[in-house]
Simulated scan of single mutants.
Amino acid sequence: MRIPRIYHPETIIGLGELPLSDDASGHIGRVLRMTIGQDVLLFDGSGAEFPATIASVSKKNVTVELHNRIERSVESPLDLHLGQVISRGDKMEFTIQKAVELGVNIITPLISERCGVKLNSERFDKKLQQWQKIAIAACEQCGRNIVPQIRPLMQLEQWCAEDYDGLKLNLHPRAKYSINTLPEPVNKVRLLIGPEGGLSDEEIQMTEQYKFEETLLGPRVLRTETAGLSAITALQVRFGDLG
């Protein structure tokens, strides 16, 4: 049986007994219904993981006994920053979950001209918390010990204008070059994925002004959630740790 991996939001210092956070306690006690003596594997985002045994369980609180600290990294050598224009429904959640599993380091939700999602600040704050929890759950599932950052919402041009010392890519179905023809070596990529209706002509010109290279995945036009994950996979195969 697979030992559950649980995220502990505060840095773990030292071994011995450790009371878990409310979220972690609720997950262990109410969702997994684990009992005293069962094993768990904690991680705090520092790159290490901590084998532990449940020492006490109540409806609201769980305490574990930490055994040791193990330095273990499954991070890709490719530093990948995804700029994703917000998509409708649960597509954005799906994109975040799978992007984290595929090794993305940072995700920035974007607003563009043809973005079909309208969020006020209060609704976005709730969405941001929800998306970060999805990223944490994806790390718990896939074995990552460093949790990717979900950044605050940004306008497309604001994000494109940020200083960046890596390769900047924009998917375009009529681009001349594919990911397989990109120059090597590449260890940092900022990847822009547009909305379901695509970027406008003016936005495409804007990305060119900020030195984004146009690239394509193949002859077919992909949906926004398919395009992003396909591009991440292709980049990880070419420059990262998938193969």
Rank of each mutant, 00 (worst) to 15 (best):
G89M: 09
W159V: 11
E203C: 11
E122G: 02
R190E: 02
L222G: 04
S112W: 02
R174S: 12
A24P: 10
E213H: 12
K133R: 15
P183Q: 14
I204S: 13
G83Y: 06
I86K: 08
N120C: 09
L32Y: 11
H172K: 01
L191H: 07
I96S: 09
S112E: 05
R5G: 01
G243C: 01
N61W: 02
A99S: 14
R223G: 07
D201G: 08
G26S: 05
R190G: 05
D201N: 11
S25K: 09
G16Q: 08
V186E: 05
D201M: 06
E71N: 15
K127N: 15
N187D: 15
M206K: 15
I150K: 05
L82Y: 07
F212Y: 15
K168E: 05
I232P: 02
L222N: 00
S21A: 14
L82W: 06
S76D: 02
L128I: 11
L32H: 11
I6T: 02
G228S: 10
L156Q: 10
E140A: 10
I136K: 04
T207N: 02
S230W: 03
T224F: 06
P173G: 03
P185N: 07
F50E: 00
L42Y: 08
L156I: 12
D90M: 06
I146Y: 06
C160T: 14
L216N: 07
A52V: 01
S73I: 13
L80E: 02
E71H: 14
A55I: 00
A24F: 12
S25D: 06
P185Y: 06
G198D: 09
L80A: 07
C115S: 12
G83K: 04
L217I: 02
I146G: 09
I111C: 12
S200E: 04
L169M: 08
Q205I: 08
R2M: 07
G16H: 04
F50C: 01
T224A: 14
M34W: 04
T224V: 10
Q236K: 10
V104L: 11
A227W: 04
R123K: 14
R174C: 00
V117F: 14
L18M: 10
E93T: 13
A135L: 05
K176F: 02
I3P: 00
M92N: 04
R2D: 07
R220N: 07
R123E: 08
L15T: 10
K188E: 13
I28L: 10
G197V: 12
C142A: 08
C160Q: 14
D201I: 07
N170D: 00
I232S: 02
R5N: 03
T233V: 08
F212G: 03
T53A: 11
D165P: 11
G143Q: 04
K118N: 13
G218Q: 06
N68A: 13
C115E: 06
I232M: 08
T233H: 11
L42M: 03
K59N: 09
E65L: 12
R151F: 00
P51V: 06
R72M: 12
G228D: 09
V31Y: 07
G228Y: 02
K98N: 14
Q209P: 04
I136V: 15
F94G: 03
V237H: 08
R33K: 13
V221Q: 01
R72K: 15
A52G: 01
D90H: 05
E101L: 07
Q205K: 15
R33S: 08
K168M: 09
